Simulated scan of single mutants.
Amino acid sequence: MAVLHNRVSQAELKKLLHQETTPRTTISFYQYFTIGDPQQFRDEMYKALNALKVFGRIYIAQEGINAQISLPADNFDALKAYLYSIDALNGLRLNIAVDDDGKSFWVLKIKVRDKIVADGITDPSFSMENKGRYVNAEQMNELLKDDNTVVIDMRNHYEYEVGHFEKAIEIPSDTFREQLPMAVEMMQDKKEQNIIMYCTGGIRCEKASAYMLHNGFKNVFHLEGGIINYAKQTKANELPSKFIGKNFVFDDRLGERITEDIIAKCHQCGKPADTHTNCKNDGCHLLFIQCEDCAAQYDGCCSETCQTTYNLPAEVQKELRKGVDKGMMVFNKSKKRLRPRLGDKDQ
C-alpha cells in the first residue's frame, strides 16, 4: 500500500530542500465546489502530487479545495494537466507567487477539514452560489477612483499592518469567523454603495462577498485572485499599484514585496520595518515585526526575557518548555496586547 503521508523529520526535510538545485515555483489556488468523498479525493490527490515532488499545505472539504504549494518549475505543466483533468478544476486560476525564493514549503500536507475556510456560518440557507462580482486589476483601480466605493480588507490585522489598498477599511479582528458578522455590522449604512472585498489569494473575500449578499447588500464585488493576482496583472499591464507595501503570506517567506513602501514599524524600536519573524525562543515563537538592528540586538527574539532563554543550553530550554502552551501568539498592535493566532492559514 502506498504511504499517503510524510515519515521524515521536519529538520531533515528542510535540509533536503536547501540542498535542491532545481528551481521551485510557489503557487496558490482554491475552488469552491462540492466534493462527495473528501477523504478519497485527498488520498488520490496526495499520490498524484507526491509523484510531482509537490510540497505545501492543502485543505480538502465538502465545500472545495484550498492550496498553497511549491514544486519544481519543470513540473508545472504536469501539475496543471493533472488539476485540469478534474472536471471541477478545469481552467482553475493558479496564482504564482510574486516574490519567490522557491523555499516556501518543505513537505506535502493534505488535510480533510469541515471547511476550507473556517467561517463560523451556521445558517443552512447560506450558499456560495450567490457571490459578488469579480473585478480585475484595471477595474479595481477604476472603482477606487469613485467616492461611492468602499474597500474592505478581509485579512487579519498582522496582514493589514504591512500592506493594504489605498482607502481600505480594516475589520479589526484576527479571525475570519469574527470578521464576517463585523463587516455586516460596520457596513449597515452603506448597503447601496459599491463594496469591494479583497484578501491574499481570493478565497476569503469570495466567501465574504457571498455572505454580504446573503445579508442584504446589493453592489458587492471581490478582487479576482486577491492581492497575488492583482500584483501580477498590474505588472503585466503596466498599471499603477493601488496596493501599498508588502503582501503577508502563510509560508516560510512571511511576505512578498508589492511596492517599495514600508508602512509598518518595528514592534521593538518603532523604526520603519515590515519584516515579520517568529521569536527564536522555542517556548515563544511570537509572530512580530522586527527591524535588522533589533534582530541583531535581541538575537531574533521578541524580548530580553526570550533572548536570555534562547541563549541557555538546549537541555535547559527543553525543561523550561515542559507543560507550556505557547498558543500560536501574534503581536496585535491595534489591541495593545498579544493574543493567540487563531485564524486559519487561508488565502
Rank of each mutant, 00 (worst) to 15 (best):
E170H: 12
Y310E: 09
A48Q: 12
A231Q: 13
E256W: 08
I96A: 06
A231I: 11
L4S: 06
D189Q: 12
F33Y: 15
A61L: 14
I27K: 01
R24A: 03
R339S: 11
A314Q: 15
C302H: 10
F176P: 05
E178Y: 06
D261N: 12
Q19L: 06
K326H: 12
P340C: 07
P240A: 13
C291K: 02
L13D: 03
I262P: 01
K191A: 10
N90F: 00
Y158C: 01
G283C: 12
N219A: 06
N95H: 13
I262H: 03
E192L: 09
Y298C: 00
S9T: 12
M212Y: 09
T175N: 10
K345F: 06
L180Q: 07
R204T: 09
E185H: 08
E224N: 11
G300T: 10
L213H: 05
E238V: 09
K15D: 15
Q19V: 01
E292Q: 14
F331K: 13
D325L: 13
T275A: 13
Q10I: 11
A264F: 13
L143P: 01
M329G: 10
E315Q: 10
I171E: 00
K53R: 15
H222T: 02
N332F: 08
F165E: 05
Q233T: 03
Q179V: 02
Y158I: 03
H164E: 05
D100P: 00
L83R: 11
N311L: 11
H157L: 03
M140C: 13
D77V: 02
F217I: 03
I60N: 02
Y298K: 11
V8C: 03
K109V: 00
L144D: 11
N136C: 07
K145P: 00
Y84K: 06
H276C: 02
A236I: 02
D114E: 14
L94W: 03
A51L: 06
A137D: 14
A137H: 12
L312F: 06
E256L: 01
E192R: 05
H214K: 07
A264V: 11
T234H: 03
E260N: 15
K115S: 09
G56R: 03
I258N: 07
N281W: 15
F165S: 01
V249A: 05
R133S: 12
C284I: 02
I203D: 05
